[in-house]
Design a protein around this nucleic acid. Sequence first.
DNA 1: TTTGTACTTTAGCCCCGTCTAAATTCTTCA
DNA 2: TGAAGAATTTAGACGGGGCTAAAGTACAAA
Lengths: 224, 224
Amino acid sequence: MTYTLAEEDYLKAIYKIAERHGTPVSTSAIAELMQTRPASVTDMLKKLADKELIDYKRYHGVSLTRTGARQATLLIRKHRLWECFLVDKLGFSWDEVHEIAEQLEHIQSDTLIDRLDDYLENPKFDPHGDPIPDASGAYRMRYQILLSDLGLHQPAVLVGVREHASSFLQYLDQNRLALGATLEVIEVLPYDGSVRLRLGDGEPILISGQVARQLYVRQTTESA
Amino acid sequence: MTYTLAEEDYLKAIYKIAERHGTPVSTSAIAELMQTRPASVTDMLKKLADKELIDYKRYHGVSLTRTGARQATLLIRKHRLWECFLVDKLGFSWDEVHEIAEQLEHIQSDTLIDRLDDYLENPKFDPHGDPIPDASGAYRMRYQILLSDLGLHQPAVLVGVREHASSFLQYLDQNRLALGATLEVIEVLPYDGSVRLRLGDGEPILISGQVARQLYVRQTTESA
DNA sequence: TTTGTACTTTAGCCCCGTCTAAATTCTTCA
DNA sequence: TGAAGAATTTAGACGGGGCTAAAGTACAAA
């Protein structure tokens, strides 16, 4: 019932890759995400398979078992709740919390995490707009689309970020692109896909197509 | 500048033993406190000595160097601040927090601990009445004596506990012996050293000499 | 001064998680 | 169909941290 730090890290990595790119998850994808060597990954996969946390066929990648997915979801719950704590209570900014939450998520205590959840008033999303699973591992996906897929003049709210790199988040801060901001696409430049948008009721700003593809928005009216 | 989990645990153990029983600290004392084998302790002592965290002479015990003591104090600071957080913010009781704080104290982030300190409003004592070192490692000892050394009819306040075992703390709870309680010794039974005392303005209660030797009190007047 | 006993260290082994180098398997394309 | 090339796994090794068994050291008592 209790796993090592390394095992937990692998489970989370597999979960994340599966979420983005589907299953099965390749050895090299895990190695890349975890900054380690494929040979090391193979070793660990055997151990995880022995513990029935993953389904593993040599040369054909892995997927999480029910138990493995359960555990991964729990880790994500812990990670995101700690991020809320760091931002909401301790005053960290959203680009500073990842590293610390990576450590905190390994603290073993169900009571602790449940009480933390209550203390934070059961948040449903973390500071990056990612959903927080409940104690049973369930979470609801919010309706959201990429800003790059938002129609012209369609009012929307910024609800999440796909990219979590500090430099990206700092860039957003500098451009007043905070979660909850209302916005509307004014123009998409045909040459390179850059997007001009109105933020709240301020002056229009220009962001690259690259950035637009990293932002999740929710439309705020049902018009075309 | 950054140490492994095991190294940190050893430093803290050595610090604690030195605090209670003085220096040098024996291999077997460390082994007993850490629930490990003397042979394992010897192995680790060599490593800590190589890193100049302890002074170590074969067969003659160890003491912490300045650097080692600094690190141990920092760990204790972290441990005690986390205990405050768990009790004051998350509503844990004082007998539930030790295990969790043992894990939390290893989280590496100076910023985190400083912000936690501020968030808790820079407490000077943890839930067991133990002093919390400041960021520089300094802390002030409170004036305190053992309840077993308190004179008859001498008004005093319960300020700390020497024993941290859950069962002991729960026993105190059941007898309304909480930190901050005012008390006065009414009688010491000659037969076994049991102490009868008045707690606040309630009925007298009887505690064993054994228990009285685990409680720290501060006298509240200068009489006799 | 010697010796018995308790304490400590050494020697040698184990498991975890990682690595490099070499071998194997998969896949794709001519 | 049959390689070439990419991905993956195996083999063998290492450092961290722990254990047992055996050997060495200290110290108190005679």
